[in-house]
Structures are given as structure tokens and as C-alpha cells.
Design a protein around this nucleic acid. Structure first.
Lengths: 342, 342
DNA sequence: CTGAAAGCGCTAACAA
DNA sequence: TTGTTAGCGCTTTCAG
């Protein structure tokens, strides 16, 4: 059991292994890639040599030679309120975990939206676009250059690409319907950044619910933000100052809803007595306020999982696989932040 | 300005560019890498060809040829309460942003702690270990194989590696001192996972403060958790049931502190009247509870930044650079969750 | 200032 | 079942 004092595994190549094992590099390659046509004895010798030398194949050489890459690039726009959110971490976490399981490398890119598609994407074997805000051209580029890709959190109708989205409109509608069922008629909406599809769809759902219930849409009741807490605060302050103050508000994200609650508290208002609130996300933080937040749960983890799975499929052997478009359902989670009125 | 309809940029190689520009591939390589010895006229021709063909060099070929990689692997242990935390997102975000600025690729690895150092690390040009929990051997391997690396959130005394940590003991001590200054003598501590250095150091700081103030350390007052909200909840329930209930508690993380607050509310207890609480992190969520959380701010972003900068330095040309060990200070942020007593 | 040619480490025909 | 050999796309001497 003598251990040859080998210096850093950094430079041991397949050739060294071949030499030590007394076979050709092809054979070594075969056992590494589990191409079964190798005599058992040789296989073991190679394996021993690998262990002895602590050999690890150069992924660069492998990728150069095969033209394939198992790197998945996850692109997340670096927007306040988008990246800086509960949502982003959930996504990263879920993608990371699943990629690990699939033996895929996860490259994280916080994109600038205006920069061109980054160089390193040339090396990506697949791309996950999360929330394409002003980066649609990147998706088009990826598609046209044949790199497998999927878009998550955005339903892309008109591009031949797989996408996994959440039923934002439906979720919003159910939230507002719930409020209406409680007797509310004066319902405001603090929307997120409507340049994101999610926020736009939620706004749509809000209006839809109102319409279907014959409640007039009041423009002053619709406050648009960038998803940041700062703007949520301003919006909340406006609401509390309205002469015809709404009795309920549907907020585009839980973190903004929490900010609304904070403002209420500072103003000596009571939630839900003075104002009913429904959020969106099911961010665990919603549980720890003075009153637990009623919200719309969106299956972020599921979405990420489906995304990685789909990408993995696309990256697999069956080329030209058809694309898949999925909309995941949401779920209204009723807690304590809403009161029936009248 | 005719645009040659070139198919996917996928396969345009340096050779195509050379041909179109009417020069050798060497020259193309020179202009791409800004090795200045190229006649201006040729340079422009190459640049045009690059644009025309939408050429992007293959990073794999580049890396194979140079033996260098600008990939930074960020290893984060996939622990409940570690990865699943405010802390992790801050880190990822900061590392991501800085890597983007340094033109480094960020590879995210959620490590399993017991798995061997992953294969793809062979391709990493540098590694950032965040929180080495049971993965010390990986650091050792990286060091011995000569891959530049830095450890963040962990002060590694006995290994020749750069590390950037936070003054956990000092932060904890200041928190407890503050409580003592308010008149508290019965101070409990809900610690995080003491197998992490951060939690261990915070516990140390807690004990230190008590000792220095001649307050006896009571073992029942020390509740150890895994940083999860579930265990924080159990700990809080225990505290509220104690016959000799503490008047204050120093909690190892803000998210656990929020859970303690939630338990208090459920039990009809008032914070800070019935119990003073100090957290650790300065997680923004701490602002949105019924009472704003007093906490210890740790400079996570700064830590990540220093880490990436240091790694970037290590990956640079000046080989064998000496290692650097930094401890960043914390700051007590006083808000509303503590009351003076007696 | 430029180009030819030798690799970088590995995979994949193709022969043997 | 195995080995030979020709690339993969780029960088880098080394001549010119």
C-alpha cells in the first residue's frame, strides 16, 4: 500500500493513467465513460490507477472533444424587487438542488438586461431564463443558435420555447374574489413592476374579478410599483390618505404587503379592521407579522423543478424534442389579514 | 452592408473569422486577446469579421489551451437553516454581482457535505467556500492541488488559506452586554447549529459577556438548534414554560428571533414587556414584525465582496500570493424589541 | 508585425 | 476487446 507521492492532481492527464495502468488512453477513456467493452482486468487496473493518481478528467477537454456541455446557465435579471426577493432565492435553491441531482453544473448569471448575451453562454449546454424582462432577444438568440433553453415564470406564447409559468391572473382573481366574497367593494391593488409578466397578469386578474362582479375599476385604486418595499410604502401611504379609502387591498407580493402592514402600524391603523390585505407569494415572512398574512401561494419550487427537468430533457439525446408550455396553478392561503365587512 | 446569412453562431470558429478577414488565426487570436502587435488595418478587418460572423470564442478551447479558467465555484452547504436563510441569498447575490463585474463565471454548488469534492471543481479557476461544515477536507484538497481558494464566514486559523469572517463572538458579546446594560440578568440564548463556527462563536460571546459581568451561566438557558424555525419554536416554547423564566433572550439569527416573537404572540405574551429579544443578522424581515427587532448587523455583502476580491487577486498573475485573514466587525442595531427592567 | 505549427486533454471513428 | 489517429478550437512559441 505504498502511496506514490504524487504532486497536485492538477496535471495528471489521461495519459498518465494509461501509462500506469498499462493500457491505451482510449481504454482509459472507455472505463471513465463506462463504455462497457473493456476487459474486467483492465478496467480494474485503470480504476486503480485513477485512484492512485487522483485523476479527474479535464472537463474542458471533454467538452471540446464532445462539443457537449452539461453547464446550465440560470439567468436572473438583477432588478430591485425581482432578484432581491423571496422569489429569487427559492428559484436558485430549487434549481441548484435539482441540477446537483442531475449532475449538471449551475452557472448563475445576474443579468443586466441591456447587455448582450454574455460570452460564457457560448459554453452553456442549456439556459434557464427566469423572468425575461427586456431580454427577449436573448431568448431568441438562444433559440436560433440551437442552445436548449426554457423560460420560467413567464408564459411565452409566440416563441418556440418551453416555458413554465404560474397562473398569475387566476391567482389574483381568486384573491380578489375572496375579498369580494367577504363583502369588500372598495378594493385597491398595489401592483409590482408591470413590465414583468407576473405583475401585469396579476393586475389583469384583479381587473377581471372586479369586472365579473360588476364593480367599477377605479384608476386611483391601482398603484404601480417596482416591487420594492420603498415604493410599497409610498403606495400604502397614499392609500391611507385617500378620501374614499378602500376597505381592502390586494398586494402584488408578500414583502410589499408586509410593508403595507408596517405603514398601517405606524399610522395607528389596525389590520384587518381598518384594511384587509391579501398578498402574493406565500413568503414565510408573512407568518411572522402582527397578523398572519393571507396570500396566494405560487409553486416556485415546482416551477424551478419542472424547468430543470424540461431543460434536462431538451439537453438529452432526443434532439429536436418538441417544446412544452405549462401553467402551474396557485392556491389561496387564507390566514388572518382579512375581515368581512358590513 | 449586406448581411451574409450565417447560420447559428454555434459553430463559427476562429478559423472562419481568419478566412473572412484574410489573415491567419494567430492574428485573430491576437486581436481578440488584445495583444497589441497587430496592424490597425488588420485589426479592423478582424473586428468586422467577428461582428459579421457573430463569433464568440469557445471558452472550452481557450481554457484547454491556456490551462486557465475564470470560473469561480461558490460552495454552499445545503443545510436547513444555513442555505435556507437570509444569509445565503445575500451571499449569492453579492458574489454574483461582483463576479459579473470581474468577468468571472459563478458556478453555484449546493454541497452535500459528505460527498467528495465534485468533479467539476477540476475546472474551477477558484473556489469560494462558504461555511465549511464537515467539508474541511475539501478545503485541504483545494489547497494541496493548488487551486486558489478563499473561505468566507469561517475563520480558519490553521490552514494556509485566505479567509474572511465576521466577528461573531464580538457581536454576540455586544448584544448580551446591551441586554445587561438594560438591567437584565436572566438572559437565555437560542443558538444556531453549533457545528457551524458562527453559532459556536456567538455562543462563546454570549458566555463571555455573562462571565465578564459576573453572571452565572445557566445551562438550561442555552438552547441549541439547527437554525431552523421549527427548532426555534420549540426553544421558545421551552423558554416560556420555564419556572425561572429569563427576562431576555439573545437569539442566533433574526429568522429564529421572529419565530420566538410569533410564539410569544400566540401565547399572549408581549414583546418586549414579557421578554426582551436580540437577534443576529439584520435581516430586513426583522423590521416588519409587531415590534422591530433589535439585532446584530453582520456585513454579509462586504464579506462576499472581500472574498471575491481576494479570490480574484489569488487567481491573478502574481502567483503564490500570501494569504490574508480578515475579521469584519459587526454592529448592534437597537430597535424596539428590548426593554430595560427593574 | 505576421503565420506555421505544436500542443492543451479528451473523444470517436476506424482498424486491428 | 483494444489501440491508432485525427480532430475539437484556441493559444503560444518560434521563425520569418
Amino acid at each position: 500500500m505504498t502511496r506514490t507521492k504524487k504532486s497536485p492532481s492538477k496535471n495528471v492527464s489521461i495519459e498518465d493513467v494509461a501509462r500506469l495502468a498499462g493500457v491505451s488512453i482510449t481504454t482509459v477513456s472507455r472505463v471513465i465513460n463506462k463504455i462497457g467493452t473493456v476487459k474486467e482486468k483492465n478496467r480494474l487496473q485503470v480504476l486503480d490507477a485513477v485512484k492512485e493518481l487522483k485523476f479527474q478528467p479535464s472537463i474542458f477537454a471533454q467538452r471540446l472533444a464532445t462539443g457537449k456541455s452539461n453547464v446550465v446557465a440560470l439567468l436572473i435579471p438583477r432588478y430591485e424587487g425581482v432578484f432581491y426577493s423571496f422569489y429569487a432565492l427559492e428559484l436558485i435553491r430549487a434549481c441548484g438542488t435539482l441540477c446537483e441531482a442531475f449532475k449538471l453544473d449551475l452557472l448563475l448569471h445576474l443579468t443586466d438586461s441591456h447587455s448582450r448575451i454574455p460570452l460564457n453562454l457560448r459554453g452553456a449546454g442549456g439556459i434557464i431564463f427566469s423572468d425575461i424582462i427586456g431580454t427577449r432577444f436573448q431568448v431568441e438568440e438562444a433559440i436560433s443558435s440551437g442552445i436548449p433553453c426554457v423560460v420560467i415564470n413567464n408564459y411565452v406564447q409566440d416563441l418556440p420555447v418551453s416555458c413554465i409559468a404560474v397562473d398569475n391572473a387566476g391567482g389574483a382573481e381568486s384573491a380578489v374574489n375572496y375579498l369580494i366574497s367577504l363583502g369588500h367593494k372598495k378594493i385597491a391593488h398595489i401592483s409590482g413592476d408591470v413590465s414583468t409578466q407576473a405583475a401585469a397578469k396579476r393586475l389583469e386578474g384583479y381587473e377581471q374579478a372586479l369586472k365579473k362582479n360588476n364593480i367599477a375599476i377605479k384608476e386611483e385604486y391601482i398603484l404601480k410599483t417596482d416591487y420594492s418595499r420603498g415604493q410599497a410604502r409610498s403606495a400604502a401611504e397614499k392609500i391611507f390618505k385617500m378620501s374614499d379609502m378602500p376597505t381592502a387591498v390586494f398586494v402584488g407580493s408578500d414583502s410589499m404587503a408586509l410593508e403595507v402592514m408596517a405603514v398601517a402600524r405606524e399610522l395607528g391603523k389596525n389590520i384587518p379592521n381598518d384594511l384587509s390585505i391579501v398578498g402574493f407569494d406565500d413568503n414565510p415572512s408573512g407568518l411572522y407579522g402582527p397578523v398572519a398574512l393571507t396570500t396566494v401561494r405560487q409553486p416556485l419550487i415546482k416551477m424551478a423543478e419542472e424547468g430543470v427537468k424540461e431543460l434536462n430533457r431538451l439537453m438529452g439525446p432526443k434532439k429536436g424534442a418538441s417544446t412544452k408550455k405549462i401553467i402551474l396553478p396557485t392556491e389561496l392561503v387564507i390566514r388572518e389579514s382579512c375581515r368581512p365587512i358590513k
